[in-house]
Computed example of a mutant assay.
Amino acid sequence: MTTNTGQMGSLPRGGAIFCTIPDILYLPELVFGGLVLSLVGSTSIEPNNPQAYVISVAIFCFIMTFFWLLIFACGSHRNRSFWASADVAYHGFAALLYLSASVLLAFITILISIQYGNNLLTYKQDVAAVVFSFFTTLLYVIHTIFSAIRWKSF
């Protein structure tokens, strides 16, 4: 019996990860996480600016999501129940990290717009980074929900 989250009681391997609902979100997570990283990295970071936390979260999540994608693509996951629960745990943790980074980035963007009102390019980059950061958070939350549905099927 198959469901919209893949085959019941199995985790996808190889190219099948691009056909199941939670796993197809790896690529948009990488793309939009990379956009957040490049947009925040292209603005000036002051010593007391918490945007370094946002960059750290973006780098951590980008590397771990790519690593997670490779694990599933290579079929290295043998113990199905462990990997299904680890998938839920990682994506839930990544969603929490991105949510905290998104809120902090939005707050800093508001403060920068008040303090440096004449630098319109930096403000536009920060606003775009905030939008992409919240969208990446949404992708991780959706991935967590569908991974939890898959985990419950074991």
Rank of each mutant, 00 (worst) to 15 (best):
S38A: 12
L39I: 01
L39S: 04
L39Y: 04
V40W: 01
G41Q: 04
S42K: 00
I45M: 14
E46G: 09
P50S: 03
P50Q: 06
Y53C: 05
Y53N: 09
V54W: 02
A58V: 13
I59F: 04
I59R: 05
M64I: 11
M64Y: 08
F66G: 12
F66P: 10
F67I: 14
F67Y: 13
F67L: 15
W68R: 05
L69P: 06
S76I: 10
S76N: 12
N79C: 09
S81M: 03
F82P: 10
W83T: 04
W83M: 12
S85R: 15
S85C: 05
S85Q: 00
A86I: 06
D87F: 06
A89Y: 03
H91Y: 02
G92M: 08
A95C: 00
L97A: 06
L97K: 06
L99P: 03
S100E: 08
S102N: 06
V103K: 00
L105M: 04
F107L: 11
F107P: 01
T109S: 12
T109Y: 01
I110C: 14
I110D: 12
I110F: 14
L111C: 13
I112E: 05
S113R: 06
I114D: 06
I114Q: 14
Q115F: 05
Y116A: 10
G117K: 07
G117F: 09
N118I: 12
N119G: 11
Y123N: 10
Q125R: 14
D126M: 12
D126Y: 08
A128K: 05
A128E: 08
A128C: 11
A128F: 05
T136L: 03
T137Q: 14
Y140R: 03
V141R: 02
I142D: 07
T144F: 03
T144M: 02
I145K: 09
